[in-house]
């Protein structure tokens, strides 16, 4: 039974990981927490569903389209809201609150279409299940693992192996110095938002398929937990975000079954607090070294 719990926890964890990466990326380049990430995750799931139900064409096509729209939404958040704040030299707090406002806008927009019902979601990656000992693993879970793995490798390649990725890392270390290199800092930031929105959208769709339903409140609670995962792993660190996500997922699952289900969220945050007490920068976070 422990194996089953572990598998469930890892599935949950890999979904968290994907969203946590988005938080980490944005925090890295902008030093703010993007509170809209949770609602963008939920939006992605809804967009895929709406497109699929409306147009009845190939699911994969609707999925791709939904991701494009999602990425665009992420882009808009930066381009039309946050960038202006940067130009006006507003404090980080103002940016933070703006992302919260953006989250509310997105949620209410979705509410217009679906009022408040929980809507069924077609599971397009259901190809049966198999057993490992006493544990049952569904194909959906396997596919989610693989997708997250592939995306992680892809993101790592982008961040550590491409010029754009180097620019992103430069901006996260010192935005002004990056400007002096001739790097288009605003462009890099926009790219980061698009990437994190696409990742969140993929997550939202996969979660919809996994649980075979979706509702518009799903953004909020997952937003908090994945933020915790990003902090746990060390904000700004890609492997940190993934590790953090997996840990939170597993702890939540095990805690829910072996201790108490009603307090499952508490366990996730308890782990976060414990880790931060001993490692203030998270598991993979680095101390900021500044020398005159």
């Amino acid at each position: 039974m422990f194996l089953q719990q572990l598998i469930n926890g890892l599935t949950l964890g890999s979904i968290y990981a994907l969203i946590a990466i988005g938080y980490s990326l944005v925090f890295g380049v902008l030093q703010i927490v993007n509170f809209a990430n949770g609602s963008i995750y939920m939006l992605g799931g809804f967009l895929t569903l709406v497109l699929y139900n409306k147009f009845r064409i190939n699911f994969l096509l609707c999925f791709a389209l939904a991701l494009i729209i999602n990425g665009f939404v992420g882009f808009c958040l930066d381009r039309f809201a946050l960038r202006h704040l940067r130009q006006k030299k507003a404090t980080k707090l103002v940016g933070l609150i703006t992302t919260m406002g953006f989250a509310t806008v997105i949620e209410n927009f979705v509410m217009l279409f679906f009022s408040n019902a929980t809507v069924p979601y077609p599971n397009k990656i259901d190809f049966g299940s198999f057993s490992i000992g006493s544990a049952v693993v569904s194909s959906t879970q396997v596919i989610i693992f693989l997708v997250v793995l592939v995306l992680l490798l892809l993101m790592s390649w982008v961040v550590y192996g491409t010029k754009v990725g180097k620019a992103m890392r430069a901006v996260s270390q010192n935005a002004d110095a990056a400007k002096l290199m001739g790097i288009d800092v605003n462009g890099v930031i926009a790219m980061t938002f698009i990437l994190s929105a696409v990742l969140a959208g993929i997550s939202g769709t996969m979660v919809g398929m996994y649980y075979q339903m979706i509702d518009f409140t799903s953004g909020f609670s997952i937003g908090m937990k994945t933020m915790a995962a990003a902090v746990l792993g060390g904000v700004g660190s890609l492997p940190g975000a993934v590790t953090g996500g997996l840990i939170i997922g597993v702890v939540e699952s095990l805690g829910a079954s072996y201790i108490s289900s009603a307090y499952r969220n508490a366990f996730a945050f308890a782990v976060l607090i414990i880790v931060i007490l001993f490692l203030p920068n998270g598991l993979f976070g680095k101390e900021k070294v500044t020398k005159v």
Binding site: G9, S218, R264, N265
Partner: peptide, 8 residues
């Protein structure tokens, strides 16, 4: 809030 019942 609880979407994942697999643990239980």
């Amino acid at each position: 809030e609880t979407k994942d019942f697999s643990a239980l």
